[in-house]
Structure formats: C-alpha cells, structure tokens
C-alpha cells in the first residue's frame, strides 16, 4: 500500500480519536444517563405507608404527579424534606404528590415523618422494584410527570424551591 495512503489513514484515525476525546470533555463520567424523559411513566401499584390501601398510577389519570424517592438514612433527603412539605402545600391542589421510600424500614420512615411532618402520601417499595422501574440511581430523586403520565423531567439531587417551581411549571401546563 502506498506510504502516503497509510499515513492519511493514520491521520484520520488520530483525528477521530482526538475529536472523541475532545467531545468527552465537560461530561461527568459518573453521571448516569436518564432515558425515560419524554416516555410514559411506568405503571405502579404500591402499598401506602401512612394510611391503608394502595396507590395505582392508573387511578390518577388526568392528574400531574410529583414522585419523590427518598430514605431516612439519606442526609440530603432530610435536607430536602422541608422543600417538599412547602411544595405539597403550595401545589397540592394542582398535582398529586407521592413519596416513595427507598431501601428503608417502615418503622424508621414512620418515625421520621412523625417528627418532621408529612403533607403528602407515602408509598412503601420494600424490594425497590418501583425504583428500578423508574431508573432511580440514588436518593433523593424527584420525577415530574404530566397529566398524560409522561415523565417530563427528573431532578437527581436535593431540590430547592426555585428549581421546584421551574420543574412543576412544565407539568401544570
């Protein structure tokens, strides 16, 4: 093979490698992609922790839903809790607020809610099946689901008031 052709191929490969490296700059290598944005929210039917009965997503047809995955052993979740209490009081008539307890005990959760307040329903997901269905990568994570039950966005960190306002505005349209 002609020496120049081979050098050209090496040059193209080197340039492709360089571009691939450059494109990866600025990306967090630990960030886990979230693929359910814009997709239908997975169905669930979970036992309520704060009352009798179960909650089915299908029963909430036509209503926007805010889902928050959390745990009592998670420090950032405790930090976020007052924001969710505030949001449930502010937007509780416009959207359904649901907390989902992730990898925790019923006893610890009930104690936490009794001490810190519980303005919205809480579900118990003992084997984390619902969390896996939703692609949860850690807690806290808050999902914003519109009235057609499409996942509009997910916030994977302790949410603050202004961020909450921005996200919920998208599902109240």
């Amino acid at each position: 093979m002609n020496r120049n052709v081979i050098l050209a191929i090496v040059g193209v490969l080197g340039a492709a490698f360089f571009i691939a490296v450059m494109l990866s700059f600025g990306n967090d290598p630990h960030a886990v992609p979230f693929m359910l944005e814009g997709k239908p929210a997975p169905a669930f039917s979970m036992k309520r922790l704060d009352a009798d009965g179960t909650v089915n997503l299908a029963d909430l047809k036509g209503k926007p839903v805010v889902l928050n995955f959390w745990a009592t052993w998670c420090g950032p979740c405790a930090q976020e809790h007052p924001v969710l209490e505030w949001a449930a009081k502010k937007y509780g008539n416009d959207a359904v607020f649901i907390g989902v307890v992730f990898e925790d005990t019923e006893e610890a959760t009930k104690k936490f809610l009794a001490q810190r307040g519980s303005s919205f329903q809480q579900l118990y997901d003992p084997q984390s099946t619902m969390a896996v269905d939703y692609g949860v990568t850690g807690v806290p994570e808050t999902y914003f689901i519109d009235r057609n039950h499409v996942i509009v966005s997910k916030y994977a960190a302790p949410i603050n008031m202004s961020t909450f306002d921005k996200h919920i505005a998208q599902i109240l349209k």
């Binding site: 990898e103 984390s128 099946t129 896996v132 990568t137």
Partner: peptide, 26 residues
C-alpha cells in the same frame, strides 16, 4: 451498578444493585 461505578450488579453489595439483580431474576 448505578450506585457503585465500575462494578457489576452481580458483584456489588449496594442495595440498588441487589434491587436490579432482583429485577433480572424477575
């Protein structure tokens, strides 16, 4: 495993990995 970078869900002791392995089993 989403909570323990670089480990498989079969090798990780993290709760999320156990939950995912349960899903594989299901």
């Amino acid at each position: 495993c989403p909570m323990c970078q670089g480990q498989s869900i079969a090798d990780s002791p993290a709760p999320a990995a156990r939950a995912q392995l349960d899903k594989v089993r299901e």
